[in-house]
Design a binder for these strands. Structure first.
Lengths: 145, 145
DNA sequence: CCTTGATTTGAACCTCGCTTCAACTTGCAG
DNA sequence: CTGCAAGTTGAAGCGAGGTTCAAATCAAGG
């Protein structure tokens, strides 16, 4: 079993187009060695990075945010334990929030079976019956940063 | 309490730019009445739609998919109970899948505290140690459609 | 009526996340 | 060594999801 993957192999295994892999490299999301003839050779661990990228993307996280996270993870120089904890904690909060949003969306949709519309009293997606709207500029939808 | 909202009011309350609201209307995601002078007037229920749109967007669902869902929900003509069930069930599966992906991402990140990188044996984001790669074109990352 | 702020339109422009293309080079099998 | 698939680059193009702009009209208070 050879150590390094060509771009074609990485593409085949990850299901990500070669053009996308080159794009990720330009953005600093993945890395590659070069052969004497300037062709890319990927370490197998890049497979994991690519999988991570795609999964994060699927749930609405931008490449820039993903890059920031990946930058910190397999650091060039040994990071402190606090570094890890800090990064992971930050992401954890964001992921928890997204999970919460998704669950709410799912449950509200479920509640709508049998009622038929989003304006049902039970539907709590926003501000049911707009009853916070009585004063000032009105109730606001506050989505997490 | 007045019945209809101007675009400025809907924007202020939803936190969504007026230009985005007009864009959503062009895509058929929300609807507005018009005054005699051609200005938009929104029913309060549109607040709920906008909130739904933003939440769904946050978790990586495209406007086209959201439109499809919203199209079916508050239908012009009374939909059957089976219609609702079908739609909600379809979304439920997709939402469940996204929740699963997010949880995996979160848990894998958590596991990496104390280890420090994505190539740890414990990290199961993709195909640990690439041990499915021995035959044929190799293991593939299969993300849900 | 006048003024001022809110709203209207279409067209142009923007960022993100890629794909496509052209022209050229590498790597490997025979 | 030949031949051909696979890989290289930069530049251009594309679709999604909007924003910005200009020039005009509308709505509401004084």
């Amino acid at each position: 079993m050879q150590e390094a993957l060509t771009i074609g192999q990485l593409s085949a295994r990850s299901g990500v187009a070669q053009s996308a892999l080159r794009y990720y490299e330009r953005l600093g999301l993945i890395r590659a060695e070069r052969t004497s003839g300037n062709q890319r050779r990927y370490h197998r661990s890049e497979l994991r990075r690519v999988a991570f990228i795609r999964i994060a993307q699927q749930v609405g996280i931008s490449l820039e945010e993903i890059r920031t996270a990946l930058d910190s993870l397999p650091a060039a120089r040994t990071p402190t334990a606090e570094d890890w904890a800090e990064l992971s904690t930050a992401w954890r909060a964001r992921l928890d929030e997204k999970i919460r949003l998704l669950s709410r969306l799912r449950d509200d949709l479920d509640a709508c079976i049998g009622c038929g519309c989003l304006s049902l009293r039970r539907c709590t997606l926003y501000n049911p019956e707009d009853n916070l709207g009585g004063e000032g500029p009105g109730a606001r939808l506050v989505l997490p940063g």
